[in-house]
Every structure is written in structure tokens, then in C-alpha cells.
Amino acid sequence: MKPVKTAVFPVGGQGTRFLPATKAVPKEMLPVVDKPLLQYAVDEALSAGIERLVFVTARGKGALEDYFDIAWELTESLKAKGKQAELATLENTQLEPGRITYVRQQEPAGLGHAVWCARHMVGQDAFAVLLPDELLWNPAYPALKEMHDAYQTLGGNVISVLEVPAEHTHRYGIVSPGSADGLVTEVKGLVEKPPQGSAPSRLAAIGRYILQPEVMDVLAAGKRGAGGEIQLTDAMAEMIGVQPFHAVTFTGTRFDCGDKAGHIMANVALALERDDIGPAVRDWLRAQTF
């Protein structure tokens, strides 16, 4: 099985739920403690052996591109002051030339359309898709690495899933499950945002995918689905039965950082894990009378 070397990051959304902050700052650059959301997704991809990063952007995302550039003045200043720890924090923000590619999504036509915009960068190889809004936190065994390990055995298409409450299934792409082996479940069908009470299971796709390049041919048809958009879930559903398709249940903690409450929860949870700021945050929380 060929390893997956390319990851696509759809980062063209307007982030209207975080206005007015996102009037000037791309939502993917909103910090969780001291790293932008996008950096967590990039770190996850790199831990899985990804070599090429494709960012599908839109108008107003210049700060995102600047972030992954080399900040010469800052770097030289830190070197001159001997601040090695600070320099180390910049390592994954300054990847060698050629590893990051940017492509513009010129209209907000859905996640499937965003992925299709990266078709020439992907070529004829399997590729990963990571949605930075979904912070999947498991430093010991990152989600994409867990999926890639399964992919090396299973081949085909692999997605990450979690069980969600039945009353929330209408918010997600939901798996129609087949046989299960531990954390791995055969995918028999996929439904994007099924009406309340009609979901085939509670297994929800949570923003991590390893896909075969043939999905681009399906997306090229431009079929509109839920919300009048080109849905990635609908395109993946057409691959079921044509290629192997499995779901891996994520073993860490998921934070929906496209939601204000989820973003705040992520900040608190990750801050509490830190040796440098965790004790102060914990003491403050204990002192509150909520």
C-alpha cells in the first residue's frame, strides 16, 4: 500500500460564527492557548508522515500564508538573544520551501468543491483531508496517524468517526455501519445531515479522511446536496462498494472549534495539561463560583 504523502486543508470559510474577530483574522488562525487551530492540524499531519500540504484558501486569507512563511526579523532577533526555546516553537511554522502549496477556492460551494480545487495537487495518489475546525486531541496517537496505520492494512478509503448523541446526528455525515473489528467499522453507506430520527447509526464523520483519487472524478460532476452545496460526504458515498471503505473510531478528545463554546473548552482543556500555565488556570477555576 502506497503511503499517503499529501494532505488537503480546506481553509476558505468565512468564519461568520466568530465575527467580529474573523473580520481581520482567518478563523483557522484563532489560537488555542498559544497555537493557531491550523497549526494543530498541520502538526497532526506531519506526525502521520505527510510531506506535502495543500491549503485551499479564499480571499482574505493572507495572514494564513504569512504565518507559514519565514519571519526573518523575528528569527534573527531570537537567535541574537539566545532564545532557543522560542526558536523551537517556530520549527513547524517554517517548513522547507515547496512543502506548502496554496490554491484558491473562488466560490463558497461546499466542502466537496474545496477538496476538488486541490485535484491537480493530489494527482493520482491517495490523499488526506483535515478540517482544522475539528481539533482531535491525542498527542500519544494522533487521529491521522491512527487512520494511516489502519489504511496500510485496509487500503481504500478511511474516515475518522465518533459516536454522537442521537439528537445531534442531523448535524453530521453519518455512517451506515457494516461489520466491526475493534475500533474499525466497515462503511456500508454515508448520509449527510440526515433528518432527525432517520440516522442509520450514531457514528459521525469528524473531519479526517484518507481518500482515493477517484473521488475527484465524482466531485467533478458538481452534484449539489445538502444546503445546495457540493458535499464531500455525497461523493464518498458513491465510492462505497467500488473501493474498500472503513471508519476508525477516534480514541482521543474531540473539540468542535467551529463553535464558540467548543473553542473555549479546547483552550481550557489544553491549558490545564500544560506544566507552565496549568496550575494557575486550575487554581483560578477552583476559586470561581459559577
Rank of each mutant, 00 (worst) to 15 (best):
I174E: 03
G262Q: 02
G155I: 08
V248E: 02
P195Q: 10
I210N: 01
Q152M: 10
K193A: 14
V175E: 02
V248P: 02
G227H: 07
G189H: 05
I210Y: 00
V248K: 06
A143I: 11
Q152D: 01
A143M: 12
V161W: 00
F250W: 07
V187I: 15
S160N: 06
A204E: 07
R202K: 13
A221I: 11
T153L: 08
I264E: 08
I264K: 11
D217E: 14
G262N: 03
S201V: 08
A143G: 09
R208E: 07
E186S: 00
I206C: 09
L144G: 10
G252L: 08
V248I: 15
E146Y: 05
A237N: 15
L211M: 13
E238M: 13
L219F: 01
I240Y: 03
G262R: 01
I240K: 05
M216E: 01
P195K: 09
E167H: 13
F250S: 08
F245W: 02
G182D: 01
H170E: 11
H170N: 13
G262C: 05
M216V: 03
K145Y: 06
V218D: 01
G227K: 08
K260E: 11
Y141P: 06
I206W: 06
E229T: 09
Y209T: 08
E163V: 10
A199S: 08
M239D: 00
H263R: 12
A235Q: 06
